[in-house]
């Protein structure tokens, strides 16, 4: 029976990996929010009706409900780590582009020679 859970967990890990490697956007954000909602429901239900978790765990072949909850938490954490990494990466790219423009603009002002004809145009750096 554990094999079912292992397959599901692996699929979840792959989904997280794909989300991590592919671009973001509104659709991704929507999916993230759906997961967040599910997580809130899961958290609430584990407090008020823990039997449901034990039932679900047995169904998936994972022993106890707490174990199932732990697994889901680990997966959710992975997802958070992945999206956070991506977000920081994007921020870093933006910051780099801006710092670069500042550097080039300042070099321009200092020199005021003919070697550099015009301030750098903002290019399509994503």
């Amino acid at each position: 029976m554990t094999i079912i859970f292992q397959i599901l967990a692996i699929i979840a890990v792959i989904v997280v990996a794909i989300v991590m490697l592919r671009g973001g956007g509104a659709r991704n954000q929507a999916i993230q929010r759906i997961f967040m909602l599910l997580f809130i429901v899961a958290a609430g239900s584990s407090i008020f009706v823990p039997q449901v978790w034990t039932f679900a765990a047995r169904l998936l072949g994972v022993g106890r409900g707490t174990d199932l909850l732990l697994y889901i938490t680990v997966l959710a954490f992975l997802g958070v780590a992945a999206t956070t990494y991506r977000r920081f990466r994007r921020l870093e790219n933006d910051l780099t582009a801006m710092a670069r423009q500042v550097a080039l603009a300042r070099a321009d002002n200092q020199q005021n020679s003919s070697e550099v004809p015009e301030p750098p145009a903002a290019d399509g750096d994503k």
Partner: peptide, 17 residues
Amino acid sequence: IVVQHPINLGQGASLQT
């Protein structure tokens, strides 16, 4: 000619600048 990054970005960023 010196082009100065306002913050530290790394060697790759320096090359691109």
